[in-house]
Design a protein around this nucleic acid. Structure first.
Lengths: 191, 191
DNA sequence: GTGATGAGACAGACCTGTCTCATCACAATG
DNA sequence: CATTGTGATGAGACAGGTCTGTCTCATCAC
């Protein structure tokens, strides 16, 4: 845990990235450990030395994606000035995501579908990511509206964007983000 | 297929009901055939004589729930007069659903998470159910607004309610439906 | 020498789907 | 009423595969 920490971390990260791609495409239960290590081209013990179990790996994948998502939205909203433009930037980001050929829906929503037990670590990780996104909306809106209205609007924006992601997965990504943004505008601008 | 059709249908329906309860709680891939037939207390061959495969059973479960959902909303909206009250009745229905102790999120959304291939029959069944719900919203709104605005609003309502269902699964059912309805009101009433 | 890794056997359980055979309900017929 | 045919069903073995997780041993880099 001193000299070769770097090599170990590289392997570890490579496994996380490979597992992410497979989970996204085929789901969590449908993706076996054997498939992951074959695709990542590592030994099974390398995986089990870095992660306590498959569930542990899933949580790591989710947390890694959540951090990456946060960094992207941080970068995206730092450049813009007004709250409305920040919201718009986030919705635009989703719109671009929906158009990507490797878009398969929200990994966190999918995780919630497969791990419905609130006590399960995966469930907890998903909840944290969604609450984080809602808090982001709320912080943005708090600059231009009272706290209780910012909370209500943030909740609506979260539900709109989650619903849009679901609709986008069914093949209506373009219409989904346009209609979601139209509704979001009404919510943000109202009163 | 003449005299004992009734008994056969009973078994068939019982398997569908049992599978529904298990799929809802634990997911599709995580629920094995053995578990279903044990819970339903039928022989394995009884299941495989009524359904071509596990996937076929899943599709039957989804279609059965979709029909039941449709009937419930039909009954719910037939009694009310104005479009706004119809929408309100639907949102209230969702609010009550979120509060039920056996609420585990939307089975169709979960199915979409586990069967992401657009060519898969499960994917098709899910898409049909969601399009049906959106069309319902659209038909209701078409009575009080122009067609293109009804289409846009219906899409927003669908996304709101789907997002609310996701949030509700994470334990915020009460707040979710209140905020969703507040946003829905703005969308329906606007302009 | 030391620690990470690759390769693969292995256990024990579970998966879907097929098959056989005994049993049972029930209808038609004598 | 008694008998016989028929189709659905229960019970469970079975095949062939996959699952997670553990173990051993050789190899390789430093």
């Amino acid at each position: 845990m001193n000299t070769s920490t770097d090599a170990g971390s590289n392997k570890r990260q490579h496994i996380v990235d490979t597992a992410y791609a497979l989970f996204k495409r085929a789901g969590f239960h449908a993706t076996g450990i054997d498939r992951i290590i074959a695709e990542a081209d590592v030994a099974k013990m390398t995986m089990y030395r870095n992660f306590p179990s498959k569930d542990g790996l899933i949580v790591e994948v989710l947390n890694h994606r959540a951090r990456r998502f946060d960094r992207q939205l941080d970068r995206l909203t730092q450049g813009t000035a007004t709250p409305e433009r920040k919201i718009r930037a986030i919705f635009d980001w989703y719109g671009r995501w929906f158009q990507r050929p490797d878009f398969h829906g929200c990994l966190f929503a999918h995780a919630l579908a497969e791990f419905g037990d609130p006590a399960h670590p995966v469930f907890v990780a998903v909840t944290a990511q969604k609450q984080n996104l809602q808090r982001r909306f709320q912080d943005i809106l708090a600059a231009v509206m009272p706290k209780n209205r910012a909370e209500r609007s943030a909740a609506a924006l979260l539900m709109l964007i989650e619903g849009a992601t679901l609709v986008a997965q069914m093949g209506q990504g373009d219409r989904a983000i346009r209609h979601a943004w139209a509704a979001a505008q009404q919510i943000v601008e109202s009163r």
